[in-house]
Design a protein around this nucleic acid. Structure first.
Length: 195
DNA sequence: AAAACGGGGGC
DNA sequence: GCCCCAGTTTT
């Protein structure tokens, strides 16, 4: 998902919604659409009262505005009905919402609540494999491996620092090794892609 | 584990 | 027209 904390305090609910909007969506788009939406509705109550057509219009520009509008409306109502209006603070509860899977759940917990949670997306998977610390074919297996090795204290850091690092520096194609602050690390562990 | 799903923006 | 995008759901 999407870390909005550098734009002022954001509630777990806003973090959850922004995370849902960010699925398969570029960061800049997520930011613009989220801000536009939160200017109108920033709580489950306000969100649940939004007519679906209005919400779809507010989400225009994001990917899949219609399915996301339905998901956001449905989870807002369920937060009101089943959770006293507060976003639940466990992965299992979060993943019962349609459209919320392991990554959105983990990032909502990590960024929204500050609870240790690990979401190994494609970027973290690539970096860890590149470094050779874990030889895992899928992000799921990389996550399992990291959960067994990494102190909980660092899980939040991975979500908030390593993912952006993978997006902007340790990219899939043409990694920016010449300006990478961790180039020495790569050379130490013998990563030959370093350029 | 792999395919399907849902689309908007950039080149 | 083609491809990517802080993913989730269904085969």
């Amino acid at each position: 998902m999407f870390d909005l904390r550098d734009r002022g305090y954001r509630s777990p609910f806003e973090q959850l919604v922004a995370s849902l909007i960010s699925a398969r969506t570029r960061d800049e788009t997520t930011l613009v659409v989220s801000e536009r939406l939160f200017a109108v509705a920033r709580t489950p109550d306000a969100m649940a009262e939004l007519p679906e057509e209005r919400l779809i219009a507010l989400l225009r520009g994001a990917t899949f505005p219609e399915p996301k509008a339905r998901d956001i409306l449905a989870l807002s109502r369920r937060i009101l009905d089943e959770h006293h209006g507060s976003v639940p603070g466990t992965p299992d509860a979060l993943m019962t919402f349609h459209g919320v899977g392991p990554k959105i759940a983990a990032l909502t917990l990590a960024v929204g609540f500050g609870i240790p949670a690990l979401a190994v997306d494609i970027h973290v998977h690539r970096i860890v494999n590149r470094w050779g610390y874990v030889a895992a074919r899928t992000p799921e297996r990389t996550m399992t491996a990291l959960l067994g090795v990494l102190p909980r204290h660092y899980w939040v850091e991975i979500n908030e620092r390593l993912v952006p690092f993978g997006k902007w520096v340790c990219t899939g194609e043409r990694p920016h090794c010449s300006t990478c602050p961790l180039r020495d690390l790569c050379e130490r562990v013998g990563v030959t892609e370093s350029r």
